[in-house]
Amino acid sequence: MELSQSISFAALGGHFFVGLSRAMILFVVTSGLSLVLGVLRVPNIAHGSLYMIGAFAAYTISRLFGGGSTAFWLALVISPFVVAAVSLVAERLLFQHLYQREHLMLLLFTFALMLILGDLVKLVWGAGEYRSIVPPQLLKGSASIFGSSIPRYNLFLIIIGPLVAVGLWLFTNRTKMGKIARAAAVDREMVGAVGINVSWVFAFAFVLGCFLAGLGGALVAPTISVSLGMDHDIIIEAFLIVTIGGLGNMWGAMVGSLIFGLTQSFGVLFWPQFAIVFPYTAVVIVLLWRPMGMLKSVW
């Protein structure tokens, strides 16, 4: 329970950048969850499982191509598509028949999906052994910024996060499909009434959201040990983040991720044993201060 006595500027900076890179991974995952929440109005509990599949797929793909730098980039590009394919199958086969049901039934469905996907990962990859991906040569080692040494891979994540945000923003604001998806988020009946096939809009939004979960899984793989249980660890954080950000709001997901990632990281600095308490406390404070989230919710 001892508080760290001397906290140097360099340590603060280091934790800031680590927290920032963690926030970016959280953002990539939660922006997908937020998209699904916004358009389909479904709290997708299986989102964490798809993130886990993304990480496992990245591991297998990078092994398949020999584990070098090229293998890493291939894994990063291919595994989100693997996840998207899995989610497309789940959506067309099962999920699309349930959109008329009550929300809690949809919640139950995504829970069932989480159970099934979790066990399928166990079946395919097995429980044991330590799995990790080596980042490519370009991103190995550390860089020094303001006197604190930051792993290059974390800097890469800090660049990727905003890129995903801009890409998603361009998609939802500049493409026809994105605009339809936004319209469906606000009033799905109206979108159907003007002759748009809402079912496919939903499918597209769902698959895109799951694609982002897969991307997040692939991105996180080099920084952790890829293992079962990743799904449980992320999903609750992801839900808290989209809630404090504002349900269905992409920039809200960014704000929420920053709050969560940074409080987590500084928590480790100030009180390692109870670091886990800091982000939860931040969520409580935000929800009591702004009960509907930081930014405007589409709900």
Partner: peptide
């Protein structure tokens, strides 16, 4: 609703963390 749920999950998770 969902906000109630999320607030409770965070507060409950604090107990879990302890």
């Amino acid at each position: 609703k969902l906000y109630f749920a999320m607030l409770q999950i965070s507060l409950g998770s604090l107990l879990w963390a302890i």
